[in-house]
């Protein structure tokens, strides 16, 4: 529910309100992670490391539903719709372009909400491993989640053997998005 500002406000103020959007969204990913079966059996250190390296990618998947690739618009949860052009003023043009492209590919797979949630769990535990101490435990959790995702998808679409591989191919896309864009700058006013 991002209150990106009407035209009257300066781009700095727009930037601040856009930056504020991320705080609740990140907290929701942390709560989501804690609900993933097995995630809290990992060491606290490894939970924090996975979240630090995977949260941006999970957010990218979550934000997909806000993007309309055909109309090139973004509709925030408060109902405000913005064209790609108007959002370029925020200086996130390249990230937005990449997001439109990614959401088009992911959207075309037509996942159900529970499949999308399980995919986000896979995204999180597939995040960068540098800094992980008990790699074996994380690998085991990842394997279990991938198995669950595969059986959920194949049970619903027994005659479609291409969907699951296509879905896993989105993981490298997300890693690229993360490497290219997680260093975008945010700005917070300190009164």
């Amino acid at each position: 529910s991002c209150p990106v500002a009407p035209a009257s406000r300066s781009s700095q103020e727009v930037w601040e309100s856009f930056s504020q959007c991320f705080t609740p969204a990140v907290k929701e990913v942390v709560e989501f992670a804690k609900s993933i079966p097995g995630f809290q059996t990992l060491s606290q250190h490894d939970q924090v490391m996975l979240l630090k390296s995977g949260t941006f990618q999970v957010l990218m998947v979550r934000f997909c539903s806000l993007f309309d690739p055909k109309e090139r618009t973004v509709t925030f949860l408060n109902g405000q719709t913005y064209s790609l052009a108007s959002l370029r003023a925020l200086g996130m043009g390249s990230l937005l372009d990449a997001m439109f492209e990614f959401s088009e590919k992911l959207g075309s797979l037509g996942l159900e909400p529970d499949e999308m949630a399980l995919f986000m769990a896979v995204v999180l535990v597939s995040a960068d491993r540098s800094g992980i101490v008990e790699v074996g435990a994380v690998e085991q959790l990842q394997e279990n989640l991938i198995k669950a995702l595969r059986s959920l998808i194949t049970s619903r679409r027994p005659d479609d053997s291409t969907l699951f591989p296509k879905l896993l191919l989105r993981l490298p896309d997300l890693r690229t998005l993360n490497n290219h864009h997680s260093d975008k700058l945010l700005a917070f006013r300190i009164d």
């Binding site: 991320f22 705080t23 990140v26 942390v30 949260t55 864009h181 997680s182 700058l185 945010l186 917070f188």
Partner: peptide, 25 residues
């Protein structure tokens, strides 16, 4: 004058996660 703290998306995410886990310890 208003002062600003500028940080990357990644640092902002790390900051929130560290805070959350510290609070729930």
């Amino acid at each position: 004058p208003k002062t600003h703290r500028v940080m990357t998306l990644a640092d902002h995410i790390s900051h929130i996660i560290t805070q959350d886990f510290a609070r729930n310890q």
